[in-house]
Design a protein around this nucleic acid. Structure first.
Length: 464
RNA sequence: GACCCCGUCGUCUAGGCUGGUCUAGGACACCGGGUUUUCAUCCCGGUAACACGGGUUCAAAUCCCGUCGGGGUCGCCA
């Protein structure tokens, strides 16, 4: 039997970090086994479901490199299937009509809680006859009262509970609307899902779902509950710990493969390997090697991974990403591709995000108008004098590339009996306005002869 | 509170099923050193963990029980 997994978000918000990981595990598991990875939009909550969220979720998955098979199944269009399933359950006696008003159930529950007694709604408590013709009723699935219900979780192992711990599940509300549990199970049967991989917050739901599968006469898929993600402090993950939306990471300058790599390693590992391409993840990922305990979200590691990917990324791609970022900086006239690619090439090993890469490269796009305080210290009268002489050397370099510039500089240094340090740092300040930059010869090459000379001259005028 | 799940460095984890090879390995972060024109990269080194208590055994991170801690769920939400 070939593997079918699915990711079933409800479009009531953007794709958050936990959802992205759940999607990823489903994706990797299916792709690694030549199976199908399906999507299902659980939009039965008409109030909270928004089309824009649905689109954002799909965009996020696409950005992260998870392609899905076929068209997403939308639950809002599947009303008939749910009604038919409920009808079947009723006619086979697996479910019953309950005329108990919701408020009444709630009151009973309240009372039980006050008395610290467990509350389970079972058939004998239900009002099974209509108080009047046409009265609203909910449909409840009859649960076993003794024995155990359970399933073999692919990650957690055997999970079971006493049947008496569960109550008769409402599968259709008194308004006639099916609830999540029914839709979820009916659709997994319909889509042929073989493996349900979801967060462990669904663990108790799954106990209910196995009863529902059986009642429907369907065989249950295999289940795998992945541990939830904790915040950096080990406590519950809150909005301030991680971005609410996967796309927010894109805006912050993260590369999708870094986020994917990070998410995969959160709760899963393959020996000592840290860096995985999507292809490697697909090849090695398995549910048996997913950990059972919660994993804390560690922003530092994400940053490190992102830096690693940026460092190894191709300059052309980085240039494109920088261009996108720089679009939000109206003051900066973004240079031509060729120039931007060079900048990316020499800057990429000192940036952890595309944002950092863009921001720390500003002096390649505009001439510094002032100098950092700690940079000014280097521009002593002697240093400025040396720079003035050095400018003549630079002017004479016909092939203005790092290597020839370096050679000419060495000659100049020998002649003037100066250590490189005494020239490089003042030069860096004059060129970039600060004390931090890539190698000075690369900077000279990228700026170009004319601009470099102009900046040296400007420094002499301002500080001389 | 009840039910279910989990518990190795600060963090992500290897090892646990098939006890000895674990004086517990790797990675991030942190600290120190080296390379270097600055920063970064890179290289080398260091600090740091089997939650606790019992048991089983010649031997336990590994198996069992308990305690404590963390999480999830207890909706006519999804």
């Amino acid at each position: 039997m070939s593997v079918v997994t699915r990711f079933a978000p409800s479009p009531t918000g953007p794709l958050h970090i936990g959802g992205a990981r759940t999607a990823l595990f489903n994706f990797l598991y299916a792709r690694g086994r030549g199976g199908k990875f399906l999507l299902r939009i659980e939009d039965t909550d008409r109030e909270r479901s928004k089309l824009e969220f649905e689109r954002e979720i799909l965009d996020s998955l696409a950005w992260l490199g998870m392609d899905w098979d076929g068209e997403p199944l939308k639950q809002s269009l599947r009303g008939e299937a749910y009604a038919a399933a409920a009808e079947k359950l009723l006619s086979t006696g697996k479910a019953y009509r309950d005329y108990t008003p919701p408020e009444e159930v709630e009151a009973l529950r309240q009372k039980a809680q006050e008395q610290k007694l467990p509350f389970r709604f079972r058939e004998e408590m239900a009002r099974k006859d209509p108080p009047k013709a046409g009265a609203p009723f909910a449909i409840r699935l009859r649960f076993p009262t003794e024995g155990v219900v359970g399933f073999d979780d692919l990650i957690l192992g055997r999970i079971e509970s006493q049947a008496k711990e569960l109550d008769d599940l409402v599968i259709v509300r008194s308004g006639g609307e099916p609830v999540f549990h029914l839709c979820n199970v009916v659709d997994d049967v319909f889509q042929g899902t073989t493996h349900v991989i979801r967060g462990s917050d669904h663990q108790t739901n799954t106990l209910k779902h196995v009863v529902l599968y059986e009642a429907l006469g369907a065989s249950a898929p295999k289940f795998a509950h992945i541990p939830l993600i904790a915040g950096p402090d080990g406590k519950k993950l809150s909005k301030r710990d991680a971005a609410r939306s996967a796309l927010e990471y894109k805006e912050q300058g993260y590369l999708p493969e870094a986020l994917v790599n990070f998410l995969a390693r959160l709760g899963w590992s393959h020996g000592d390997q840290e860096i995985f391409s999507m292809a490697e993840l697909i090849k090695h990922f398995d549910l048996g090697t997913v950990g059972k305990s919660m994993a804390a979200f560690n922003p530092d590691k994400l940053l490190w991974l992102n830096q690693t990917y940026i460092k190894n990324a191709d300059g052309k791609r980085l240039a494109e990403l920088m261009r996108e970022h720089l679009r939000h900086e109206p003051k900066i006239a973004v240079p031509a591709d060729e120039h931007l690619i060079k900048v990316a090439g020499i800057q990429k090993e000192r940036a952890r995000t595309i944002r950092e890469l863009s921001e720390s490269s500003w002096y390649f796009f505009m001439r510094p108008e002032q100098y950092e305080e700690k940079g000014k210290k280097f521009l002593t009268p002697e240093a400025l004098a040396s720079l003035g002489k050095y400018a003549k050397t630079l002017k004479g370099v016909s092939d203005f590339h790092a290597k020839p510039i370096e050679a000419a500089t060495q000659a100049f240094l020998t002649e003037s009996n100066l250590p490189l340090k005494d020239l490089a740092q003042p030069l860096r300040v004059a060129l970039t306005g600060g004390t931090v930059s890539p190698g000075i010869f690369e900077v000279l090459e990228v700026l170009g002869k004319d601009e470099a000379l102009a900046r040296i001259e400007q420094a002499g005028k301002i500080l001389g």
